[in-house]
């Protein structure tokens, strides 16, 4: 069972995770803008920029994050932003939120000049996460775990980051046992997806370059 302190931590993380939302004026464009590759590229770029800002607001609320060295805060976010955004995108596509937008968003991604070499693995990853039937609690905790990953480049005080990540991993592990009693491997499979997420991190810079050229 989760201790009352762990329950409190879980609700706090869930609450700040659910506050994340990209401003209405951007999601409205998703519906209104015309469908040229150029327009889609610009719209997706604007959405990604806004998504990073929303992600930073979530990160600032993570227990203990503001106590970290400022440059380590930057290094953690730089190292995890792409992975955290892929997780959030997987949730959006798998839970079809908000209704109807997900299909339109997928259409725009597929018509934005991005090469299929990157689009196919991206949507395969979303599907593979979908098969895990993750709950909102798991998405929010896994995002917090991804952000507070100590072994990112340029982190000076890894130990402090580890101390912040550990309680979140403990809650996530217990949560998996409680929410997926039929699948004792569920927690291990979640962590396995984090390894796959890292590969996207590496390919992302390459993808951006080829996308801009296209």
């Amino acid at each position: 069972e989760l201790t009352s302190e762990q329950q409190g931590l879980l609700h706090y993380i869930m609450d700040s995770y659910n506050r994340q939302c990209i401003p209405q004026y951007i999601t409205r464009k998703l519906l209104q803008e015309d469908f040229s590759a150029e327009e889609n590229f610009l719209l997706l770029t604007e959405m990604a920029t806004s998504h990073v800002q929303v992600l930073v607001e979530f990160t600032k609320k993570l227990p203990g994050f503001q106590t970290l060295d400022h440059e380590d805060q930057i290094a953690l976010l730089k190292g995890s932003a792409v992975e955290a955004m892929f997780l959030r995108s997987a949730e959006i596509f798998n839970r079809k939120m908000p209704h109807g937008h997900a299909d339109l968003l997928e259409e725009r991604i597929r018509n934005s000049g991005m090469s299929n070499d990157y689009i196919t693995p991206m949507f395969n990853f979303y599907k593979s996460l979908g098969e895990l039937k993750m709950t909102q609690e798991e998405y929010s905790l896994l995002t917090a775990v991804v952000i507070l990953t100590p072994d990112r480049q340029y982190i000076k005080d890894k130990e402090s980051v580890e101390k912040l990540q550990e309680p979140l991993l403990d809650v996530l592990q217990k949560l998996c046992q409680v929410q997926h009693p039929e699948n004792p491997q569920h927690f291990a499979r979640l962590l396995g997806r984090l390894t796959e997420l890292r590969t996207f991190n590496h390919h992302h810079a390459e993808m951006l370059m080829s996308w801009r050229v296209n």
Binding site: A48, T49, I74, K78
Partner: peptide, 21 residues
Amino acid sequence: PASNLGLEDIIRKALMGNFDD
């Protein structure tokens, strides 16, 4: 516009600012 900023610039600005409102 913000979209021309690199990832690090966006992060630095967002850490200092407050995009909640």
